[in-house]
Simulated scan of single mutants.
Amino acid sequence: MGTSLVRALRPDGVFATVGFTEGIPQVPLNLVLLKEISIRGFQLGSFVVRHPDRYAQAMRKVAAFAEAGMVPYVAAVHTLDDVVLAVQQVGERRATGKVVLDVSGQNRFSLVTRVPSPAASRSIA
């Protein structure tokens, strides 16, 4: 998969990795050189340790988004009895938003269908 992703990048593009769901992609370095692209990786655990101030700043922004009503779109909520169905939905790429597995048995999650307006997202710094 790494080869096709690198081929799809424009010259001077950026190949960014944020975790892996299907193994670690193999990236052809000759294409990296020829297309003059950059490769960036991100791992939350080490980021928090190395940059606690930047992490705290990002969490304040996330809190501001939540206070403004900007929450992730939840496409489906499944009980623990439906875990196979939930995993299939994600694995087959049929999920169009977050898929929540509610293990509490209290049905605390609801589908969120509100999409914030562009003006609301611009007002948060």
Rank of each mutant, 00 (worst) to 15 (best):
V99R: 12
P25C: 03
G23F: 05
S38W: 04
V99N: 11
G45C: 07
T96G: 09
A76F: 13
P116A: 09
E67M: 03
V48T: 07
F47H: 13
F47N: 09
G45T: 12
A16F: 12
G69R: 04
P52N: 01
P25E: 07
I24Q: 05
S46D: 06
L29K: 00
A63K: 03
K98P: 04
S117D: 08
G13I: 04
G19A: 05
D82G: 15
L111S: 12
V48D: 00
L111M: 11
T79F: 14
R60G: 02
R94T: 11
V100T: 07
G105H: 14
P118L: 03
V49W: 10
F20D: 00
S117A: 06
S46Y: 09
P28L: 01
R122W: 05
G41S: 10
S38E: 06
L34K: 00
D102A: 11
A16P: 03
D82P: 14
L101Q: 11
A68P: 02
G105A: 15
L80Y: 13
A64N: 01
R50Y: 09
N107A: 15
L34Y: 00
R114H: 11
Q43Y: 12
L5H: 04
P25W: 02
L111T: 14
D81Y: 15
S110E: 14
Q106A: 15
I37Q: 00
V27D: 02
M70K: 07
L80D: 12
T113K: 12
T79Y: 12
A119H: 07
F20W: 05
D102N: 12
A120G: 02
Y55M: 04
S110D: 10
H51D: 13
R54Y: 06
F47W: 09
T21W: 03
R40K: 13
A120P: 00
D82M: 14
A63G: 02
V90L: 14
G91Q: 11
A120Q: 12
L34G: 01
V14C: 08
R60F: 03
